[in-house]
């Protein structure tokens, strides 16, 4: 079995995996980082979004071996100790989550957006979220939260 080594949330980790292991499986099953979720099997829902080398990516659509040597950040690595990341804080402030299942992917995607397009309009925010499906919030408060984080990030 191949061995993969990568940096996850600032820590160097490695593990033996079958080549067919998805990055999300490696995170959840080998590293017990269960904050990254799997909500579909067609690479559309975005519950599994993490950052790979600084860009948001679907960890269900990437093999763990493809992330060998990469710098991966998951939802667990976003906060600074007990202090929420501004995007996390904005989601709480604006009630941008309900059941919480899509939330990790949504937050990771939103952080990437604000990094790349800090002044995104509401329309651009909604388009960016094309790869993240939420069934609870109707997106209304997610958009508000991201707009808030544009000010605080």
């Amino acid at each position: 079995m191949p061995t993969v080594t990568m940096t996850v949330n600032g820590k160097k980790v490695s593990g033996e995996v079958e080549a067919r292991t998805l990055l999300v499986q490696f995170l959840r099953e080998n590293l017990h980082l269960t904050g990254t979720h799997v909500g579909c099997d067609t690479s559309q829902c975005g519950a599994c979004v993490v950052h790979v080398n600084g860009d948001s990516a679907k960890s269900c659509t990437m093999l763990a071996v493809q992330a060998d040597g990469a710098d991966v950040v998951t939802i667990e690595g976003l906060a600074n100790g007990d202090e929420l990341h501004p995007m996390q804080a904005a989601f709480k402030e604006h009630h941008g989550l309900q059941c919480g299942f899509c939330t990790p992917g949504m937050v990771m995607s939103a952080v990437d957006l604000v990094k790349k397009n800090p002044k995104a309009t509401e329309h651009e925010i909604r388009e960016w979220l094309e790869g993240n499906i939420c069934r609870c919030t109707g997106y209304h408060n997610i958009v508000k939260a991201i707009q808030h984080a544009q000010q605080t990030m």
């Binding site: 939802i75 667990e76 906060a79 929420l84 919480g100 299942f101 939330t103």
Partner: peptide, 10 residues
């Protein structure tokens, strides 16, 4: 409940 969901600890 938000803190645990927002930090991946649900």
């Amino acid at each position: 409940e938000d803190k645990r969901f927002l930090t991946g600890r649900g």
